[in-house]
Amino acid sequence: MEAERIRVLLEREFPDAAELSVEDRTGTGDHFQVTVSSAAFDGVPLIEQHRRVNDVLVEHLRDGSIHELRIKTKGTT
């Protein structure tokens, strides 16, 4: 799948993201690195931050169109 499609899905979920990047790590359209920095994560435990990112992409994780997803999240404080 296209990195751009993942970006659109994440932008809809995190419209105020200070930083939002999606990288196709291997060029094969199924190994992605996602980085999201947003005030929505301030004070939120790391696992919950990652859970929110997983939730946005859960269908693509389940159907295998995303084979491997690496996540980096940060608050803004």
Binding site: L46, I47, H50, R70, I71, K72
Partner: peptide, 12 residues
């Protein structure tokens, strides 16, 4: 207790 996946385990 669920710690998470690879990313979180590495960050911790």
């Amino acid at each position: 207790e669920l710690i998470g996946g690879a990313d979180i385990t590495e960050e911790l």
